[in-house]
Simulated scan of single mutants.
Amino acid sequence: MTQSTAPATAASGAKPTLNSIAAATGVSRQTVSNVVNDPSRVAEPTRGIVESEIRRVGYRPSAAARQLRTQRSGLLGFRMRAVADGINGSILDRLLHALTERAHERGYAILVFAAADDDAEIAAYDDLRATNALDGFLLTSTNHGDRRSDWLAAQGIPFVAFGRPWGRDDAAHSRDHDWIDIDGGHGTAEAVRALAADGARRIGLIGWPEGSGAGDDRADGFRRACAELGLEGDLIERAEDSFESGQESAERLVGRGAEAIVCVSDSLALGAVARMRALGRHDVMARIIGFDDTPVARAIGISSVDQPIEQAARAMLDLLVHRIEHPQAARTDGPPALLLPTVRRRTVA
């Protein structure tokens, strides 16, 4: 006999409703409706209690009824990018998974599409809005002078970007459009502090070529921490994001006297660890910190900066839904504070 795995409900066999959830949590039906449709209107801990009951009973809003009532499709567009090396692409995988989960909780669905470059992505926006009536878009990999956000804003299409509007004046405080970001500079600064606490005085950085918004931000954090600690801040090698580049850059850095290395990606860190092992520089190998805390880094034991991707995804999705469902709502005085990553220390096997 097969055991049923259907979620429990307030009344056995009954489909959960706003009323049954309200009764179970001791709040009003309107409060439950607000948690489902506009959670920012409900304060903690009430929102958390209601969301927990919603998950427990498996409540899902009726998509058909919602579309008829709101004249919206409930679809959000997300461009899936090609993975260059199979390592750092896991960050966008995590983001998409978390976005999809949160969208499901909010009664929306993610429509994933491919585009070769930003021009093709803009063309896809236009086509998808015409053929699928998407309600909004979730942008990733923002860049200097990003034309995608300009196009969407000009068309009046709701969107939220994962990443600051790089290239704009004071990007960290820009209110040109909605965005959520993680403070990469804080992550590399914390990595420098962790290595300095281990006794390292000559710490190098393997960064991306100049002009990458996220890469430059991480390099700035490295320099700030070095200046704060009285360390040399110009032991920097710029490289394309690959295992091979990590190998070559790490060898150049130790040739310049580096005794520890911060990398702006786990791809670069993996290459650096491999080259240090080959050179017999186990002292440096034990003092390499990557960025993104990918499954590969965790499996090998490489220390890495862990980004709160799931928290970012929930914030992105909730902000986009708010913009879709409350188009006349005024903007706040600024974007939410940058989310802070955490350094995860490990010992390389």
Results as ranks from 00 to 15, higher is better:
Thr347Val: 14
Glu240Gly: 07
Val254Ile: 12
Ala84Pro: 06
Ile91His: 02
Ala63Gln: 08
Ala274Ser: 15
Ala10Trp: 13
Arg314Glu: 05
Asp216Gln: 10
Arg201Tyr: 03
Arg29Asn: 13
Ala65Arg: 15
Ala258Leu: 03
Gly246Lys: 00
Gln247His: 06
Val36Lys: 06
Ala133Asn: 13
Gly77Asn: 08
Ala116Leu: 07
Leu139Gln: 08
Ala239Val: 05
Arg298Leu: 02
Pro45Glu: 00
Ala219Phe: 02
Ala189His: 06
Arg331Glu: 15
Ala120Cys: 02
Pro39Gly: 06
Gly230Ala: 09
Ala24Met: 09
Glu101Lys: 00
Gly257Ile: 04
Ser12Val: 11
Ala130Val: 09
Val264Ala: 00
Ala82Gly: 10
Ala109Glu: 13
Asp198Trp: 07
Pro335Asn: 13
Thr347Ser: 14
Ala274Asn: 12
Asn88Leu: 04
Ser20His: 10
Leu319Met: 14
Ala172Ser: 15
Thr17Pro: 03
Ala260Arg: 00
Val160Phe: 12
Arg287Val: 06
Glu244Cys: 00
Gly145Val: 08
Cys226Ala: 07
Gly290Pro: 05
Ser33Phe: 04
Phe243Arg: 00
Met316Phe: 12
Leu231Met: 05
Ala258Tyr: 07
Arg202Met: 10
Arg47Pro: 03
Asn143Arg: 15
Ile203Lys: 05
Ala109Leu: 10
Pro335Ala: 14
Gly163Lys: 11
Leu134Gly: 04
Met316Arg: 05
Gly290His: 00
Gly211Thr: 06
Arg201Lys: 15
Glu210Thr: 12
Ala214Glu: 01
Leu253Ser: 02
Thr31Val: 15
Leu152Gly: 11
Met316Asn: 05
Leu75Asp: 08
Ser52Ile: 04
Asp118Glu: 09
His282Ser: 11
Ile309Val: 13
Val264Asp: 00
Leu338Pro: 11
Gly280Tyr: 10
Gly48Gln: 09
Ala116Ile: 06
Ile21His: 06
Arg148Gln: 11
Arg102Val: 07
Ala274Gln: 13
Leu320Val: 07
Glu121Phe: 02
Arg168His: 14
Gly145Thr: 08
Ala98Trp: 00
Ser141Asp: 15
Gly334Val: 07
Gly301Arg: 08
Ser149Leu: 07
Gln30Leu: 14
Phe113Cys: 03
Val192Gly: 03
Ile182Asn: 08
Asn132Tyr: 13
Ser28Glu: 09
Gly213Val: 08
Ser141Pro: 09
Leu205Ala: 03
Arg223Trp: 02
Arg331Pro: 13
Gln155Trp: 06
Gly107Pro: 00
Gly58Ile: 08
Gln155Ser: 12
Ala200Leu: 09
